[in-house]
């Protein structure tokens, strides 16, 4: 019995930092911007990680707007491709927000990160610097509960507006919390169905208003 070849990418050890690393791409390596950031902002740049030729810069949360504006003005990072929240599920600085920036003129990509505490997670908004951040920040607020200070329209993106939870947080159960998302009423002005498995519990939705349902009396 011969063994099958099994190729895998090791998770814990970084790959070789050479151009022959299949994951390494020259576009994600931007030492110029990183060194300029370190020079300009000093301690506000907390950590620079280079993995598989990608630069990730962890910066101080309070200075993210300043740093983004600097990169936009001086290094051509005019395009915010993505922004999102990460639940690290750690004791300190539980939530993280990443910003993927693209410079179209220099063909570079740079990732910025900020971290925030579990109690009252607040990050300054980037929606005035990059207009694309508007909906991304609404999504991060909806899914993670990270509040973006200064955002002019921080409503939920996907979930109903009266939903009480932030479903992408790690403590949120995958199947949801029963009763938190109502099903529609069977007739106008009727009671909302709070049981998500109403059909399994014997409820039969009515076909039209004229019809009397068996479950109405119950």
């Amino acid at each position: 019995m011969s063994s099958l070849p099994f190729d895998f990418t090791p998770v814990d050890t970084p790959g070789p930092q050479t151009p022959d690393n299949p994951h390494a791409k020259a576009t994600t390596n931007c030492p110029d911007a990183v060194s300029a950031l370190q020079e300009q902002f000093g301690d506000a740049v907390r950590e620079v990680v280079e993995y598989a030729n990608e630069h990730t810069v962890l910066v101080e949360r309070d200075r993210i707007v300043e740093i983004a504006e600097y990169l936009k003005a001086n290094h051509g990072f005019t395009y915010l491709v993505d922004l999102g929240g990460i639940d690290r599920f750690t004791e300190e600085e539980r939530f993280e927000v990443f910003y993927n920036l693209v410079s179209i003129t220099t063909r570079k990509r740079l990732r910025l990160k900020v971290r925030t505490e579990e109690e009252d997670p607040v990050v300054p908004t980037l929606s005035r610097t990059y207009r694309s951040a508007n909906w991304y920040e609404r999504e991060a607020w909806d899914m993670m509960g990270i509040r973006f200070e200064g955002h002019e329209d921080l409503r939920r993106m996907f979930m109903p507006e009266d939903f009480e939870y932030h479903p992408q947080r790690k403590e949120f159960p995958l199947l949801g919390i029963p009763g938190s998302l109502p099903l529609p009423a069977q007739r106008p002005g009727g009671e909302l169905t709070m049981d998500p498995f109403a059909a399994a519990h014997g409820s039969k939705p009515i076909k039209s208003y004229e019809e009397t349902s068996d479950t109405d009396d119950a």
Binding site: L181, L183, P196, F197, A198, A199, P205
Partner: peptide, 13 residues
Amino acid sequence: CYGVIQGIDNFLP
């Protein structure tokens, strides 16, 4: 998962 109805017969005949 939390956002998807587990069968539309929960609210439609």
